[in-house]
């Protein structure tokens, strides 16, 4: 594997808060254009790791390189080349669709012409012609999230971080959202995504599982399922995150092959 096909390279990346080690010497690589699922239990250190990779927090020790930039020194360049979207913060509620797009376009230094062009394209693609001058807060959650994703890739980043982008979104919109992710990935954008929906983990090219600040497993969904001899990523998750957990006698609904 040549190094230029790698977009994220982390080596022994560590973050400590006082005595507590949130991220404990993790090493991994993400390939250009892949959909990389970053899973883990609550408090396993996912958010901390993402913040370090985005250049928001300095690691305590270790190395990491994102899109060719060093996370210690070149945080400004990293911020310019990556996109970021989270469930909690994405768009300004009290601005209209168009105003949000122009604002983020401006933040990333796009020219007025290109902002105009892109927002027209985006509004057409998301079929929100009628709603373009409405405040974000009046839109359904699913629409907001789709729009937020479009805004996060507005400046054609090489890499997008998505932190639980589909939490609470209805099943159809959730899939539409993933179609957008697929589309971006097929255009060469690397997707780094966290989720609590385990069916979404299956949509990733490769998945890493964080447990107590360490990466406990990293592979394709299929290989992971084979390795643990289970049928779904949900079960993989349970086996890794809580090896001592005894499943309840309740039927869990899984896809059964005929």
């Amino acid at each position: 594997m040549s190094t230029d096909s790698i977009i994220i390279k982390a080596e022994d990346l560590t973050k400590r808060f006082g005595k507590f080690t949130a991220v404990d010497s993790i090493s991994f690589e993400v390939k250009k254009g892949e959909i990389f699922g970053f899973l883990g239990a609550n408090g396993a250190g996912k958010t901390t790791a993402i913040k370090m990779l985005c250049g928001l927090w300095k690691p305590t020790t270790g190395k990491a390189n994102v899109a060719g930039f060093d996370v210690y020194k070149q945080t400004e360049q990293i911020k310019k080349t990556v996109g970021y979207m989270s469930q909690k913060f994405s768009l300004y509620d009290d601005l209209t669709v168009k105003e949000n797009v122009s604002f983020y376009g401006g933040v990333y230094g796009l020219s007025n012409n290109s902002i105009k062009e892109k927002s027209e394209y985006l509004i057409k693609k998301l079929e929100i012609e009628k709603e373009k001058d409405e405040l974000i807060k009046s839109l359904p959650l699913g629409w907001k999230q789709k729009l937020a994703f479009s805004v996060a890739v507005l400046h054609d980043p090489l890499l997008v971080f998505l932190d639980e982008p589909t939490g609470g979104v209805d099943p159809i919109t959730r899939r539409q959202f993933w179609n957008m992710i697929y589309e971006s990935a097929s255009n060469g954008v690397t997707i780094f995504v966290t989720t609590h929906y385990m069916d979404e983990a299956e949509y990733c090219d490769r998945v890493s599982m964080m447990v107590d600040g360490k990466i406990a497993a990293l592979d394709t969904p299929r290989n992971l399922k084979n390795r643990f001899n289970v049928k779904s990523m949900h079960d993989v998750f349970v086996k890794l995150a809580r090896p001592d957990y005894v499943p309840n006698p309740i039927p869990s609904n899984q896809i059964t092959t005929l």
């Binding site: 609590h196 998750f237 349970v238 995150a241 809580r242």
Partner: peptide, 10 residues
């Protein structure tokens, strides 16, 4: 909501 799959199971 927002809780990981294992905690949800439990």
């Amino acid at each position: 909501t927002g809780v990981d799959p294992v905690s949800r199971n439990e």
